[in-house]
Amino acid sequence: MASQKETFMAKWTEPLTNELVSLLVAEVKKGNHTTCTYNKTGWNNIHTKFNKRTGLHFSIVQLKNKVNKLKRHYGSFKKLLSQSGFGWDNVNNTVAVTDQSVWETHIKNNSEWAKFKNDGFPQYLDLCIELDENPIDDGAFTPNVTITLDRQKRKLDRTPNSKRRRKSNTYDVSNACKAIHKMIKFKTRAVVAILNGMPNLEQDLYNKAVNQSCLNATWREAFIISLPDRRRGLLESL
């Protein structure tokens, strides 16, 4: 039994934060998340499973405080990604920039963004699910894609440079995200089509594969390009 002092002091490490976020996402999928927060069942599940998996004795209040802090970081990080010259690095789960010099100006205007330059925000995509933001998955938004789309836009835009420069300052990455999200949906459907064509596939493996396909871009790609006789092994490793 933890002492009152041990229970009160919550020290959050990266693995503990990731564990909490995974439980948040799980409760969203179960339907235990309302417009603003989780219902009583959701919080009880998160509280019980978190302490059981970690061997700690955090209170629900401590977990809620951490979630509120993550939400604030999420809002700040999302705003950063909307700035001109910034994108999402799907490999390192961090911010990617077309030119490192853009950091200096933006950090001066918002000191909170400084932590994202070094640490990124690994939980960003999972929190998209928790906050019902239609996430683009962990292989979706890369700086190369953003640059390519921006260049294509300029090729089609024949307005004078001065006017086009003003437009670029307000360029919204949401259109790029939407286009890539459609591509991800298509690839997920491809995985499901392959699964449907596999004879005698157990329902449990089918469910795990569909879930993994939605959450993990790397696994999804590997499954699609694997030889037919190798796919069963990938499924059994889940």
Rank of each mutant, 00 (worst) to 15 (best):
S3M: 08
S3N: 12
Q4T: 11
Q4N: 11
Q4P: 13
Q4S: 10
E6M: 06
T7I: 12
M9D: 04
M9E: 04
E14F: 05
E14H: 05
N18D: 11
E19C: 07
V25Q: 01
V28A: 00
K29S: 03
H33P: 02
T35C: 01
Y38S: 02
Y38T: 03
K40L: 06
G42P: 02
I46F: 03
F50R: 04
H57Y: 09
L63W: 00
N65H: 04
N65K: 07
K69W: 02
G75H: 07
K79H: 09
L80P: 10
Q83Y: 03
S84N: 12
F86D: 05
G87P: 03
W88Q: 01
N93M: 10
T94R: 12
Q100V: 09
S101E: 14
S101I: 11
E104I: 13
H106D: 10
N109M: 05
N109Y: 00
G120A: 11
F121C: 01
L125Y: 10
C128F: 00
C128N: 12
I129E: 15
D132T: 07
G139N: 07
A140C: 12
A140H: 03
N144L: 07
V145L: 15
R151A: 11
R151D: 11
L156D: 10
N161E: 13
R164V: 05
S168K: 08
S168D: 13
N169T: 15
T170C: 01
Y171H: 14
S174D: 07
A176K: 07
K185V: 14
K187M: 11
K187I: 08
R189A: 15
A190N: 15
V191M: 09
V192G: 09
I194A: 12
N196D: 15
G197P: 12
M198R: 05
N200E: 14
D204N: 09
Y206R: 13
Y206W: 09
N211L: 14
C214A: 10
L215V: 05
N216Q: 07
T218V: 13
R220V: 10
I225V: 14
S226F: 06
P228S: 12
G233V: 06
G233D: 14
L234E: 12
L234V: 10
L234R: 08
E236G: 09
